[in-house]
Each structure stands twice: as C-alpha cells, then as structure tokens.
Design a protein around this nucleic acid. Structure first.
Lengths: 71, 71
DNA sequence: AGTTTTAATGAAGCGAGGCTTTGTATTTTC
DNA sequence: GAAAATACAAAGCCTCGCTTCATTAAAACT
C-alpha cells in the first residue's frame, strides 16, 4: 500500500487539530463529507487534485505544507 | 479549471528537463505511458497518489518538491 | 533542408478509486 | 454517563486517471 496516502492523511489531521477544528467543520469548509475527511486522514484514499486544493484552503496552508513530513 | 494540476505539471516538466531526460524515459521510470506524462505535464489530469510517489522517485526528489512553486 | 527524435493531440474505451449515503459502533470529551 | 466526535462497513455511482492506437506538430541534430 502506498505510504504517501497515510502520511498525507496524518498531516491533514495534524493541521486540522492545530487549528482546533473538527472533521465536520473541515468537511464543510472543503465541500466534502465527514466520512471522506475521515477516510483521507486514515489514508483510505488520497483526494483528487481539486480537493487537495480545497483542503489546503480550508486549512489556511499552502498545498506543499500538506506534503511536508519526514520520509 | 484547477490551477494546481497545471502548476504541478509545470513542476514535473521543469524537474524532468533539469535532469535532461525525455518524457519516454520518465514514463518508463515511473511505470506510465508517454501520453500520460504529457497529459500530466500539461495539466490535463493530476495523477493519483500512487503515481505521484513514483514520479517523485523517478525524478529523485521528495514529493513535496513536486508541489513547491509560487502561488 | 531533410531526417530523426521528441512531444502534442485526438478518439475511444476500461477499470478503479474517489466520494456519497445510510447506518451502526466506538472513542473522545465534558 | 451523556453528548459529541470519529471510526467503520456496505453498497452504489460515476468521474477521471490511464491505456492503446493513430496522426500531427515541433525540436533537435547532421
């Protein structure tokens, strides 16, 4: 299984928690469902480019920040 | 149209040219077709996470480098 | 200029994976 | 212990990533 999805998900979760917002809030801000946010954070699937953009906006970070983690 | 796909594609192209390799070479290294590389570089579609990983490996860069560009 | 290599483009098709809905269970928080 | 937040499962939809094949255009090289 691809480790990138997992690392990406962990990063989303981390950034979300730092902001102190819930999956539901993030879901609304990004135009997704809470289930999708849950799946993304757990690395079940990796979002499409369109939604990567929306996630970054909702989290007030640059897209690259979503991919900044230790290998 | 999502600008992220386009920026990502430009970055792939840039990194590929720096390495002095052809789309065909990159395609082989990443396990994709030359048409896909062409489509990715032009922002026609954004690759899945699995292939983002493979592209980064083929280009000898970290995934985050593929997303490092000016907004 | 002519030839070869490289890249762009188009059409058509397939399969998978991203995303949703609904519902239930589990965990976390207060 | 109740309420809120998250996990998990199953089922289904359908877009989109990717391929193959074929043609054209552009770049590079001699």
């Amino acid at each position: 299984m691809s480790t990138l999805k997992i690392q990406f998900g962990q990063q989303v979760r981390e950034l979300r928690r730092v902001q102190g917002i819930t999956q539901e809030h993030l879901a609304n801000a990004a135009g997704l469902t809470t289930e999708s946010i849950s799946n993304i954070e757990r690395g079940i699937f990796g979002p499409r480019f369109e939604n990567i953009e929306k996630l970054a906006q909702a989290l007030n970070v640059d897209v690259k920040n979503l991919f900044e983690f230790d290998n």
